[in-house]
Amino acid sequence: MNKLLKTVLLFSAAISIIPSGTAFADDKLETATTKFVDANGVKFSYRTLGPKAGTPLIFLQHFTGNMDAWDPAVVNALAKNRPVVVFNNRGVGSTNGVVADNITQMTTDAYAFIQALGYKQVDLLGFSLGGFIAQELAAQHPELVRKVILAGTTYQGGGNNLMKVLGEAFSRENVQDPRDYLFFSQSDAGKQAAAAFLSRVYARQAGRDPESGKEIADAHGKALIVWTSTPDPEFKTLKAIQQQVLVVTGSNDTMLPTEGSITLFKEIKNAQLVLYPDSNHGSIFQYHDAFVNTADFFLSH
């Protein structure tokens, strides 16, 4: 069965099949307790949701993102059928230390965090910059990583429009939150989805992570630009990934161009691809219900 046919079958089946869970936790991302664990000289902050049994799904966050930047509609829904872990990497949010400015260090720290929790095998959901870390973890630690979801991301050397798009987002008048432009299309449907997303991510009132400042933005920006500008002409990292991978992106990702996700699909041996219409960098948040159904099926089969 060729890869394209497998992708179509995966997406079609995911519309109607959602695996059933077992024991459920009552907590949600909006209310989950922030915990801490020491690893690699860092006191990592994290939150866990969902049942205790099953393969944990580790969320790897985007440029300047902290735990409260995740969409509860995605996190809470995926936690119904599996353990879910969100965390802040070195120097971000309520995790201490100097923020890393390269993907190698971020990957090393993420691996140390997962090891500190005692997990022998995990699944990964890497969004945007987090997708770079997910690729490196999958390639370097095949014994640890079972399955991978790469959302709104690209490959090493795949290029980026970070500075251009950030400039456009912040040049608008009365900008309340740039993610309405960075993550969503500017159609009426996209704007409605953006407003709904922002209301969800600000739902947590108590114990929110501190917002990321210039130090984090500068370090993450350097890491993102260097990684996406460093050629890997033989796709060595992608060729090393043998796990099943679900690649998800929007029809017009303006920050990490959609073509990069198509290359991920083509060059990773066991990759499947989902493209959402009329969507930008944050397609998994605009189409959160469809994405969760697809991700659930992918992770459970």
Rank of each mutant, 00 (worst) to 15 (best):
Glu136Pro: 05
Ala290Gly: 05
Gly158Lys: 15
Ala219Leu: 03
Pro56Phe: 03
Gly207Tyr: 08
Ala13Arg: 14
Gln121Gly: 11
Asp68Ser: 15
Asn161Gln: 12
Gln205Lys: 15
Gln272Phe: 02
Ala151Asn: 03
His220Thr: 04
Ile58His: 07
Gly118Glu: 12
Leu117Gly: 03
Ala206Ser: 12
Leu124Pro: 00
Ile225Phe: 01
Leu275Asn: 07
Gln244Thr: 11
Asn161Ser: 09
Gly250Tyr: 00
Ala110Cys: 14
Ala206Asp: 13
Ile225His: 03
Ser300Gln: 07
Gln140Phe: 12
Met67Ser: 07
Ala13Tyr: 10
Ser283Ile: 02
Gly97Cys: 09
Lys80Ile: 00
Thr254Ser: 13
Ile216Val: 13
Pro231Arg: 12
Phe44Asp: 10
Gly97Ala: 08
Gly131Met: 05
Ser171Pro: 10
Pro233Phe: 14
Ser12Arg: 07
Gln243Val: 02
Thr230Arg: 05
Ala217Met: 09
Ala295Gly: 02
Ala100Met: 07
Met106Phe: 11
Ile58Asp: 04
Asp253Val: 04
Gly118Arg: 15
Ser45Phe: 07
Ala271Glu: 08
Lys269Arg: 15
Phe87Lys: 07
Met1Ile: 13
Gly93Val: 08
Asp188Tyr: 09
Val92Thr: 12
Gly250Lys: 00
Ala53Gly: 11
Trp70Phe: 14
Met106Pro: 09
Ala79Val: 02
Tyr276Asn: 01
Val84Phe: 01
Lys239Thr: 13
Gln205Pro: 02
Leu137Asn: 03
Gln243Thr: 03
Met255Leu: 09
Ala138Pro: 03
Lys3His: 09
Gly159Phe: 03
Lys214Phe: 11
Val247Ala: 04
Thr48Trp: 05
Ala13Pro: 05
Ile268Leu: 11
Leu238Ser: 06
Glu267Leu: 04
Pro72Tyr: 08
Gly158Phe: 11
Asn174Lys: 14
Leu224Ile: 09
Pro72Lys: 10
Val226Thr: 13
Val122Gly: 00
Ala295Thr: 01
Ser251Phe: 01
Thr107Val: 11
His62Arg: 10
His288Thr: 07
Leu9Phe: 11
Asn280Glu: 12
Arg47Asp: 08
Val248Ser: 02
Pro231Ile: 14
Ala73Ile: 06
Ala169His: 06
Gly190Pro: 02
Thr34Phe: 11
Gly157Val: 10
Leu5Lys: 15
Thr95Cys: 09
Asn81Glu: 01
Ala217Val: 04
Ser128Leu: 02
Ala25Arg: 12
Phe36Leu: 13
Arg179Cys: 04
Val99Tyr: 06
Phe235Arg: 11
His301Ala: 10
Leu49Phe: 03
Ser261Asn: 06
Ile225Gly: 01
Leu137Asp: 04
Asn89Tyr: 05
Asp68Lys: 14
Ala203Pro: 04
Arg204Ala: 04
Ile262Glu: 12
Thr33Gln: 15
Asn81Trp: 00
Tyr287Glu: 00
Leu198Glu: 01
Ile262Asp: 04
Leu150Lys: 00
Ala138Lys: 07
Ser45Gln: 11
Glu211Val: 08
Gly159Tyr: 02
